[in-house]
Each structure stands twice: as C-alpha cells, then as structure tokens.
C-alpha cells in the first residue's frame, strides 16, 4: 500500500468529517436550545450551496461578498422558516415534555418541511447538477503527497469556526444566553431573557452553520438538489453517535465517520455505508448515549 494515497484518503476523510461536524453543531445547537429535531437541516445545507453557487458563479460576485451574502440569505431563510413552522411547534413544548416527544413532534413538522424545501430547490434551480469553479485550485505537493488546497481549506475553516463558536458561547452575552436557555428556559425567562428571540437566533445560527457547510462543499462536489436528503441522515447518525448533548462528541464522531467513509469507499466501495451504519448501531447498543454519554451499566 502506498503511503501517499493513504495520506490523501486521510485528508479527504478529515474534510468530510469537518462538513459533518459543522452540520451536527448546527443540529445540536437547535435541539439543545429549542428542543427541535430539524430534518430540514439538510435543505439548509443545500440552500447554502446553491446560494453560494448563484452569487459566486452566476452573478460572478467577489468571493468574500458571495460568502457574506450566503450567510445573510441563510439567516433570512431560517428566520422565515422558524417563524412560519417551528415557532408553533416550539410553543407546544412544556417544561417537562421529554426529548423523545419533542423529537417526534418536530420530526413530523420538519420532515414535511424538508419535502417542501427540496421541491422549492428543484423548482428554482432545476434538477441538473451544477458545478462551481474551484476558488482554490492549487494543489500542494509535499514529497509526493498531493493535497488539494480546497480540502485543506475545509478543515482549516471548520477549525476556525469551532474557535469562533467557542468564543461566542463562552465570551459573549448572547452566546451565554443561548446556553442558559438550553439548560433551563423557565429560569432564563426569570432572568429577563427573551426566550423567543433566543430560539430564533439559535435556529438561525444553526442553519447558517449548515449553509456554510454547503458553501464549503460546493466547489468540491457537483451540486444536486438531492444532496440535502442524502446528508441529513448521515448527519443525524453522526450526531447520535457522538451524543446529542456533546459538541466534543460531535467532533470525534464526525472525524470517525468521515475517515471511515473515505477509506471504506476507496477500499470496499458503496457497501461501506452499510458497514458504517452497522458499526454505529453496534456501538450505540453498548453506549446508547454516544461517545461521551453514559455507558450502559
């Protein structure tokens, strides 16, 4: 076996993992603050990818400008989606509603929404695949190892975003308020925190993360309206694997699954997805709380 190839598979795996991690951070943030399990999260990823394609490739805007516009569009779309759909779901949650009930209620709403949004994407952008010219076409070569700058940039940007998020949650008032609402929304109301506003802000931030993941993947893979439905189930799997309440778990699970996918696909082809699923199921039988959750007694 050629070490160069292994290293390339490793970097590819890490970059896929980084995409999962961004998606799962978003899912977790939304679940932890609002209690909503959002199956339409994958469509946010698609919106991010297509908005970026449209602004960068079609309108031919400057890269930085296209990125900022994509983030703004994601904030608007998610704000509208929250206010139109999830606000009403959220309003039915009580302080003592168990997560499983919340998950069921929000799954019904969000799966419906997922179908609506994916149709909108097809209507708007068509079913043909779209490509974005790579904005980082360089390939670094270190002693025979070829590393496409794009893949590396995904990893670096994900690390950067994780750093920004950590500063946001621990260093800013809004971030702390999101943490407070996620631990005890009743107590946070008594502190004067407007929880409705925090819900919508968390939903928007989570959706922006999905949009950014889509933006990052856009130059690597061709865009396809079905990419959201494909990735959401993998993202959910990664989230459960890492533990719903653990951001650290999401990092470990994202990297594990990303690597397994990259190596598995290379060596055993499409069947690797099945094996991955089996692997995660077996793991969850013994550790239902995920990586950092409680081990089964």
């Amino acid at each position: 076996m050629d070490g160069t190839l292994l290293f390339q598979l490793f970097v590819n795996g890490l970059s896929i993992g980084a995409i999962y991690i961004l998606l799962v951070f978003g899912l977790q943030l939304i679940i932890r603050t609002t209690g909503i399990v959002n199956f339409a999260h994958g469509e946010m990823y698609v919106f991010g990818a297509y908005t970026f394609w449209f602004t960068y490739s079609v309108l031919d805007l400057h890269l930085g400008f296209a990125v900022i516009l994509t983030v703004i569009v994601m904030a608007i779309i998610s704000g509208v989606v929250y206010r139109a759909v999830f606000h009403y779901v959220q309003a039915r949650f009580k302080a003592d509603t168990p997560l499983s009930d919340k998950a069921l209620m929000s799954a019904m709403a969000s799966i419906g929404l997922m179908m609506v949004l994916s149709r909108i994407i097809v209507l708007y952008f068509g079913t043909d695949q779209k490509g974005i010219p790579s904005f980082l076409p360089q390939v670094f070569v270190f002693s025979g190892i070829r590393l496409p700058a794009e893949r590396l940039s995904i990893i670096l940007i994900a690390v950067l975003i994780a750093g920004i998020l950590s500063f946001f949650f621990f260093g800013t008032k809004l971030g702390k308020a999101m943490r407070a609402v996620s631990t005890d929304s009743l107590a946070s109301k008594l502190m004067g925190i407007n929880s409705d506003r925090i819900f919508i802000a968390s939903f928007a931030l989570g959706s922006i993360l999905a949009g950014v993941a889509g933006l990052l993947i856009a130059p690597v893979f061709a865009l396809d309206p079905a990419m959201g439905t494909e990735i959401i189930f993998m993202a959910m799997l990664v989230m459960v694997f890492g533990g719903i309440n653990s951001y650290k778990g999401a990092v470990y699970a994202g990297i594990t699954v990303g690597l397994a996918e990259s190596f598995g696909y290379y060596f055993i082809g499409i069947i690797s997805h099945v094996l991955l699923f089996v692997m995660v199921m077996v793991f969850l039988i013994f550790r239902p709380g995920g990586f950092f959750g409680e081990a089964l007694e």
Binding site: K176, T183, L186
Partner: peptide, 26 residues
C-alpha cells in the same frame, strides 16, 4: 420584579459568575 424559583433552578453547566451575569441580563 425578580423571582428566585423553587428547586434550585440554576444554569448548572455555567459557572457561579456566569449565573450571576445572567441574573443581570437586562
């Protein structure tokens, strides 16, 4: 009007300082 609710409803994964900061949120 402030309320200290029954049942020690703290933000349990936040520090003492952060809890106090949330008290002064507005």
């Amino acid at each position: 009007i402030a309320q200290a609710p029954e049942g020690k409803r703290l933000f349990i994964d936040m520090t003492v300082e952060e809890n106090l900061e949330m008290g002064a949120y507005l």
